[in-house]
Nucleic acid binder design. Structure first.
Length: 195
DNA sequence: TAGGCCATCTGGTCCT
DNA sequence: AGGACCAGATGGCCTA
C-alpha cells in the first residue's frame, strides 16, 4: 500500500480567476456555460419584431438573473461541500493521531486509518474483556463487579453479529475476540511493509 | 505509464 | 426552502 506526504491541495472557488501554478483547473464544461435551451429559444424569437424583442429582452433579463442566482447558489453549495470535506479530513487526521502505528514518517491513507482504527478498537475491547473476565469468579472486592456483565454483553453482541452475517464469507474469516490484538499487530506490520 | 489516492464539482435525496 | 449528506465523475499528483 502506497502513501505519500504531500501538502494539501487548495482549491479556490470557481469565482476565482487567478490560476494557481501547479494546481488543477476546472476544465469540465460547467452547467449553463453553453447557454440554455430557453435562452436559445428566446434568441430566435427576438428576430421577429421590435415588440417581441422588447418582450424577449425582459424574458432574458429574468432568465439571466435566475441563471446568475442558480450559479451563485451552486458556488455557495460548492463552498459548503468543500468545508464539509475539510472537516471530514480533519476528523480523519485526528483519528490518525490517536491510533498507534509504526509508520510515523508516512501518512496513513483514509482506508488504512479506518481499518486500523476498527481493529485497534477490537483489540482494546478484547483486552478489556480479558482483564475483566479474569475477575469473573471473584465477584469479590469492593464495588459492583462489571466484568461479568461486560463479558455477557459482548458475547451477546458477537452472537447477534454472527447471526446477521451468517452465510457470508466475511464471517468465516472474522477472528474471535482474542485474535483481535494479533490481527491488529499483523495489520500494522503489513502496512509497514507497504502491502 | 499504470494504478492508487485525493480534492473538487455536481446533481440527487434526505432532513430540519 | 435551504442546508447536509451522499455518490459518481473528473482530473491532478505521486510512486513503483
Amino acid at each position: 500500500m502506497k502513501t505519500k506526504n504531500r501538502p494539501p491541495r487548495r482549491r479556490t472557488s470557481m469565482q476565482d480567476t487567478e490560476a494557481i501554478p501547479g494546481e488543477r483547473t476546472p476544465e469540465r464544461p460547467q452547467p449553463g456555460s453553453g447557454g440554455s435551451e430557453l435562452a436559445k429559444g428566446l434568441r430566435s424569437r427576438a428576430a421577429r419584431t421590435a415588440g417581441a424583442r422588447a418582450e424577449v429582452s425582459r424574458h432574458r433579463q429574468g432568465s439571466s438573473s435566475r441563471r446568475e442566482n442558480s450559479v451563485q447558489r451552486r458556488l455557495e453549495s460548492n463552498e459548503r461541500e468543500r468545508q464539509r470535506m475539510h472537516k471530514l479530513n480533519n476528523a480523519f487526521q485526528a483519528l490518525r493521531e490517536v491510533i498507534p502505528h509504526v509508520r510515523a514518517d508516512k501518512k496513513l491513507s483514509k482506508i488504512e486509518t479506518l481499518t486500523l482504527a476498527k481493529n485497534y478498537i477490537k483489540s482494546l475491547t478484547a483486552t478489556i474483556l480479558t482483564m475483566s473476565s479474569s475477575r469473573l469468579p471473584g465477584l469479590e472486592g469492593p464495588g459492583p463487579a462489571a466484568g461479568p456483565k461486560l463479558y455477557q454483553h459482548y458475547q451477546q453482541q458477537q452472537q447477534q453479529q454472527q447471526q446477521q452475517m451468517a452465510g457470508t464469507t466475511l464471517n468465516a474469516t472474522e477472528p474471535q475476540p482474542q485474535g483481535h490484538l494479533q490481527r491488529y499487530s499483523t495489520q500494522i506490520h503489513s502496512f509497514r511493509e507497504g502491502s
